[in-house]
Amino acid sequence: MSPIINQTLQLADTCLILGQRNSEWCAHGPILEQDIAITNITLDLIGQARHFYQYAAELISKSENKTITEDALAYLRTERAFKNWLICELPNEDWAHTVLRQFFFSSFQLLLFEELEKNSDSQLSAIATKSIKEIKYHIKWSSEWVIRLGDGTEESNNRINKALQILWPYTGEFFMPADYEIISVGPLQEKWLLSIKEIFDEAGLTMPENIFMQSGGKSGIHTEHLGFILSELQYLQRAYPGAEW
């Protein structure tokens, strides 16, 4: 498959898997207002995933001369074909884990999509433009929570530090290029670290140093969690092949 298809699928899978994880909060949030807030982010992510899947489906349909749908791509591909960033598939731990992951994720997503917006592929550029408005809000929301929890109570500070230990090793993957990537991600790292540091300073958090970084998601080497996510996500499509819903 062409680099552009692979890149599109990576972004689609990434948004879908984080959307799937965040959707676990729906009906279980810490307070009604925030249940609604995290679910808005979930809906944005699933919307972004759909745009990318639809575009990938269009490209694949054209190149392979058959009809592929967004759902076929989301529901009928297997673990090794998924290209999402590893950080998305990690199980939800607590609110601190969720807001910190969202903060890391969205801060990188913004930088990436600003590059994507400049891409000569007009479809990808258009999806990026639309998504950036959403992402900016996600950063605002999640960074405020990171500060609140970092500078809140002793317990919240402990919890966000624990989340930091879990999540940090999965942030390096953002900047490790996969062979098909059409955007050069390495150079984005410095800017990303700066934006994280600014919020961490306000939250009283320290950036870990010299941590070994996990990677592999972009090329289909995942954690054990992804298989379970897919078996739930894809269950109906697998149990009733070919049915319309």
Partner: peptide, 14 residues
Amino acid sequence: ISRAPSLKRKAILI
């Protein structure tokens, strides 16, 4: 929500 059979149904249900 986690098992909705299509992306459209998932978004509607959420």
